[in-house]
Amino acid sequence: MAREDEIYSMEEGGAGRGAPNSPEVYAQVCSSKAAVTTAQKFIAEVIGTYFVIFAGCGSVAVNKIYGSVTFPGICVTWGLIVMVMIYTVGHISGAHFNPAVTITLTLFRRFPLWQLPLYIVAQLMGSILASATLAGTLNVTEKDFFGTVPVGSNGQSLLIEIIITFLLMFVISGATTDKRAIGELGGVAVGMTILLNVLVAGPVSGASMNPARSIGPAIVKHEYTGIWVYVVGPIIGAILGAFAYNLIRFTEKPLKEIARSGSFFRGDDRDDVLRG
């Protein structure tokens, strides 16, 4: 505790073992466990988001330019890259890769508020870097834009984005934040949800579900048509999805009273499945 007080005092410019601006003070502060952990999370989110956007948006660009990926291939690519990166850095940063997810987890007190800006900056940075990489390595013309633009009306795309992000956050809440779930399968569940959402909603709205996924390509290619849809829609959908899962997360009633008919959960050994 004394050590933490000393570091806090140094961070605030107070007296320590050395002068406030001495190399010794900065070395002690930067080597603290909290600082290193935060830096690792930031880097993990940048790298994770980078490769999610690089592979996902890259499949879109390559398919438009060369026609070799196909739409089902794009869907599979999005699902696989999200799943792979969850298992790669999920134990370091939580593998958000999505400002809507981070904001929602913060609102429901499952993520510290002070880290929220850091994560959003990391996610946007990763998306912009990946988009710049694609734009610089592929011959991306205006018709080959790999971002998201509403195919129909803005209202139609907004509704679609809310629905599919609702499903995504509902799955994330159930598969990764509930201790009763099989945690090892969380990455598979989230990745497959992304795949299904892109398959269904991709032709309509581009199936963003992620403000960073849309903002990065928009900034790099200067294409902002309907960009607000991909910021507002995913955030609303994610909040509603988490709220819906929290309604059913805990109950003191036995399962047989909740689902008296039509349920395959029958039997006394499953009565306590939904108990908190």
Rank of each mutant, 00 (worst) to 15 (best):
V52R: 00
K33M: 10
C30W: 07
R109A: 13
S157Y: 08
R109T: 14
V231F: 15
F170C: 01
R260V: 09
S261R: 15
I194G: 02
L124R: 06
K179A: 12
I47N: 03
G206W: 01
V60L: 08
A19Y: 11
G186I: 01
S153E: 13
L124I: 14
R260I: 05
G90D: 11
G56R: 00
P112R: 14
M83Q: 15
G191Y: 01
I227D: 03
R249L: 12
Q28H: 12
I239M: 10
I163G: 04
A15H: 11
I43Q: 04
A61G: 03
A238G: 15
L158F: 14
L105C: 13
A259I: 04
A2H: 13
S31Y: 03
V60Q: 00
T37W: 11
I7M: 13
I248D: 05
A27P: 04
I74F: 06
T104P: 01
V204I: 15
A244E: 07
V121H: 09
F243D: 06
L159P: 00
L105N: 06
L105W: 03
Y224S: 09
N197T: 09
P99S: 13
A175H: 07
P112Y: 12
V151C: 02
R213Q: 09
A212L: 05
F170N: 02
T176C: 14
Y87E: 12
G155Q: 10
I92E: 05
Q115H: 12
P117W: 08
S214E: 05
P72G: 09
I258A: 11
G48E: 10
S22W: 06
C30Q: 12
E11A: 13
V69T: 08
E257D: 15
M10V: 10
M10E: 15
A100P: 02
F265H: 12
T165I: 04
L185G: 07
L134Q: 06
K179Y: 08
G241I: 05
I103D: 00
K256T: 09
G262A: 09
V60I: 15
V82S: 05
V232Y: 00
L134I: 09
N246R: 12
A207L: 08
I182W: 13
T88K: 03
G186E: 04
F250S: 14
E24N: 07
A207R: 07
E4R: 14
L199C: 11
T177E: 13
E24S: 15
I162L: 09
G16M: 10
F108D: 09
E184Q: 13
S214V: 01
H96N: 14
I164K: 00
Y50W: 12
A201S: 15
P23T: 12
A259E: 12
V200Y: 05
R17V: 14
A242Q: 14
F243K: 10
T104I: 01
G174E: 04
H91W: 14
I86T: 03
V60H: 00
V188M: 13
C57E: 06
I74S: 05
R260P: 05
T37G: 06
E223A: 10
N63K: 01
T38V: 13
M10G: 04
E6M: 13
D271K: 11
C57M: 06
I194P: 00
S214R: 01
G206R: 01
A201T: 00
G233V: 03
A55E: 02
R275C: 06
Y224A: 11
F71W: 08
T176V: 14
N139K: 14
S205W: 07
F111R: 04
L240Y: 07
N197H: 02
S214D: 07
G191E: 02
V140L: 06
N197Y: 01
V84C: 10
Q156K: 14
